[in-house]
Amino acid sequence: MAYGYYPGCSAHGTAKEYDISTRKVCVKLGIQLEDVADWNCCGASPAHATSEELSLALPLRNLALAEKQGLNSIMTTCSACYNRLKVAHETVKESPETLDRINDIVGEPYNKTLKVTHFVNFLSEEVGLEKLKEKVVKPLKDVKAACYYGCLLTRPPELVTIDADPENPTIMDGIVEALGAEAPDWSHKTECCGASLALSRTDIVVRLSGEILKAARFADADCIIVACPLCYANLDMRQSQIASRHGVDYSLPILFISELMGIALGVNYDELGIDKHMVSAANMLREKGLM
C-alpha cells in the first residue's frame, strides 16, 4: 500500500536533498510513497499570525486532496508542515463546527480519515526500528550524532507531539542508534532556532542557532541530525554568519535524518545530495570511514 507524501515547499528549494534522500531511503526500505497531487503550502507561521481560518484552511485542502486521492495517511518530512497539518487535523477532529466552517472555506470536504505523521514517527511506528536495523549495511560506527527536534515536532504536546516526552524526546535518537550511531543526550534538543524570523530578524536566528551549535559542540557531537528544512536552513546555511558573529567557527555538519539513513542503508553518497550543504559533511564522513 502506498503512503501519502507531502513534500512541502522547501523540498523544492533549499532542502532539495531532504526530498531526494527521503525518496531514496524509502525505496531501500521498500516503502511506496505517493505524492499528494497538486498540494499547496501549509501556510506556516505567517498564516496563523494573520488569520486563524487561513491557518486551518490551507493545510486542510491538502488533507482533503489526499483523502480524495484514496490515501489513508499523509507523511511529511518538514516539522513546520507536520505541525500545521496535524494541528488542523486535530482541531477539526475536536470540533465538528470548525470542520464545517473550514470545509466551506476550502471547498473540498475533509472527512478526518487520514493518519498524519512526520517522517520520524513514520519511521519508528510504521517501519519499525527492528526492520530498520536489518536493512543497515554500513553501520555508523563511532558517529556521535546529536538529534535536534526543534519546536514544532514536540509542541504543543497535546496536539502534535511525536514523542511521549516533549521535554526530552528520544524518538530520533532511537532511529540514529538503530543505524549504529551514538545519539548523545544534550541540552538543546528542543530549543528554538527562531525559524519564523529567518528573514525578518536574521540577527535573532543567528544568535539562537549559534547557541544550539555551541550546545552540540559541548556534547562532543560530530554532526547535528535534523528532521526539518527550516532547522536545517538556520543551522547549516547560517553557520558562516554565526562564525563571523560569535567568532567561533563550529564547522558542524548538519545532516537530514534521511541522509544519515541513506548512508547506513548503502545509498550512494552522490545520490543523497549531501554535497548541497553549506557546511560540508565530507570530511566527517571520510574520517569515520563512511565515504
Binding site: 488569520s51 487561513l54 471547498g107
Partner: peptide
Amino acid sequence: DAVKAIFERSKGF
C-alpha cells in the same frame, strides 16, 4: 484558483 478562494473566504485577513 482554489487556494485564492481560500484566501478570500478566510476571515481575519
